[in-house]
Simulated assay, not measured.
Amino acid sequence: MDFSYSDEQRMLAETLERLVADQPAPERRASQPDLAAGQCSPLWHTFAELGLLHMPFDESVGGLGGDGTDLMITMQALGHGLVPEPYLAGLLLPGDLLARLADADQRARWLTPLLEGEHQLALAWQESSARYDIHAIATSAQRHGNGWRLDGSKQLVMGADAAAAILVTARIAGEHPDADRLGIFLIPPGTPGLTRSDYRTMDGQPASDLILESVTLDGQACLSENAAAALDATFAVGIAALCAQAVGAMQSSCEQTLAFLKERRQFGTPLSTFQTLQHRMVDMHLHLEQARSMAILAATSLDRPAPERDYRIAAAKAYCGEAARFVAEQAIQLHGAMGMTEECLVSHYAKHLVMFDHYLGDSDYHLEYVSEHLSAA
């Protein structure tokens, strides 16, 4: 197969490389002022001006019609520079659901401003009792007059503190237990009954836990009352994007580690001449290239039938998760004690790569899915 980029894709990759190179390094971002709630960064507005926010969405909803490869190029560049803007959590996941489920009025209210860079959104799906199963939802939604009432809780909602609205998954009870459906609801911040606890993940990303106690919404707040298939498709896109982002971060970790070994000297000799360390660098690059192949597989599988798509996506996430942890651990060890310090750039990449394995399902979870698929086949 021909994996070479088209002229447009090469231009996209070069533009992103220059854009990311101009951003502050992670170890210097602590000195940057925090943005006010709901405010987007100057870089986010630059993304909008360049069309990067429109790129992954279909032309029918105001996007540019980019495919999985375009998304992979974008996410690899963001991962390589460890760009903190929530392209995945604040744009791709909630925006993809809106594009699939929203009516014309909901798109005009929420999706169009999202693509223009005017606001960000968030998706609340994870619950404490569900592990990573997006269908095992305990949060309930019940009819309340002409609207809805939601009760439950959500964990690890990325970017909820800056979101103009949060898309929340909830179980809609039917007349029979087997008739339960999965719904998606739009909840603006400050809605009565919604309590948010903010914190930072281990790699410094803003996240929140939500408690919903008799949250009352009008009828327009419901995106869909039967969103299971759309949620599966959106998560496939998100996992493919996440794998590409991890590949970019792994590549940067390998580059930093090799540069350190060439510069650092012991007994008057660069560390890069030690054969044992050369073997470890080779192992890191092998994991990187195999993860890159799996990320390509994921990106090119998004238009496949759902069972084949989900199997390939799960296999890619399982391998990329293992590779990310291996590269992170090796990078830290080869840097020595300084690799654990905040001042060392590679430590920020290592924390990001470890966190990657736990977002949208860890390696064990996806390996179980692959195993079940093979057993059924």
Rank of each mutant, 00 (worst) to 15 (best):
M1I: 10
D2N: 15
D2H: 13
Y5D: 14
Q9N: 12
L12Y: 03
A13H: 09
E17N: 12
L19V: 01
V20N: 07
A21Q: 06
R28H: 12
R28A: 13
P33Q: 08
A36L: 09
A36R: 09
A37I: 05
A37V: 10
A37S: 13
S41I: 10
P42I: 09
F47Y: 10
E49D: 15
E49M: 09
L50W: 04
L53F: 07
M55P: 02
G63F: 03
G65T: 08
G66R: 00
L71F: 07
M75T: 04
L82N: 08
P84S: 06
E85W: 08
A89F: 06
L92W: 02
L98M: 13
A104H: 13
Q106V: 10
T112Y: 12
E116G: 10
E118L: 09
H119W: 12
H119Y: 01
L121E: 04
L123Y: 15
A138V: 00
S140H: 10
A141T: 00
R149S: 11
L150C: 06
L150M: 03
S153I: 00
K154A: 02
Q155M: 10
L156D: 10
L156W: 07
A165S: 07
A165V: 03
A173Y: 00
E175R: 12
E175Q: 13
D180Y: 06
I184C: 02
F185I: 03
P188Q: 04
R196K: 14
Y199M: 05
Y199W: 09
R200M: 10
R200D: 09
D203W: 14
P206S: 08
A207P: 01
S208C: 04
D209W: 07
I211C: 11
L212A: 03
G219F: 09
A221R: 01
A228W: 02
A229K: 07
D232Q: 11
A236E: 02
A240I: 00
A241H: 01
C243V: 05
A244G: 11
A244T: 02
Q245P: 05
M250Y: 05
M250N: 04
Q251L: 05
E255L: 14
F260N: 06
L261N: 06
P270E: 00
P270M: 00
L271K: 00
F274T: 05
Q275E: 15
L277Y: 08
L277A: 12
H279N: 15
R280M: 14
V282F: 13
M284T: 09
H285W: 11
L286Q: 15
L286G: 15
H287S: 12
A291L: 02
I296V: 14
T300C: 04
L302R: 06
L302P: 00
A306E: 15
P307V: 14
E308I: 14
R309N: 05
R309K: 14
D310L: 14
D310W: 02
D310P: 01
Y311M: 12
R312V: 08
K317T: 01
C320Q: 06
G321V: 01
A328E: 03
I332D: 00
L334Q: 07
A337R: 10
E343W: 03
V346N: 01
A350L: 09
D357K: 03
L360Y: 10
D364V: 09
H366M: 05
H366T: 01
H366F: 09
V370C: 12
V370Y: 08
H373V: 13
L374F: 06
L374N: 08
A377L: 12
